[in-house]
Design a protein around this nucleic acid. Sequence first.
DNA 1: TGTTTGACCACGG
DNA 2: GCCGTGGCCAAAC
Length: 114
Amino acid sequence: MPEPTYYDLVYAVVRHIPRGRVSTYGAIADYLALGSARMVGWALNNSFSGDSVPAHRVVNRKGELSGRNHWPTPTMMQEMLEQEGVVVENDRVQAFDKLFWHPAEGLGEDFEPF
DNA sequence: TGTTTGACCACGG
DNA sequence: GCCGTGGCCAAAC
């Protein structure tokens, strides 16, 4: 993979999510200004093969753990989040608007994976 | 090659 | 808050 693909950018952004914070598919898609939120989901699904990406920090716009079903065990995603100090209840992130982290805030608009 | 599906989102009712 | 609809783009069949 000589060139940066959409997936590589998604992985890079997800890896830069601060510990104890969460982001959304739409925010990443909007930040990258490529594809759509669905592509982020596909990218993360692919991320299970090889690269270790903190996909547990990525939730949908409601703050719900929509991807928990794709983890080895559905409870693992919530465990990881609570381990970082994120309060999760009924498969939803509490104080989601406070913990929400937008890539542009932490990385800047000219962020590149290299 | 065309259709369906998917870890989504915005909008309107 | 819920539900249906349209849009989005890549992979699977």
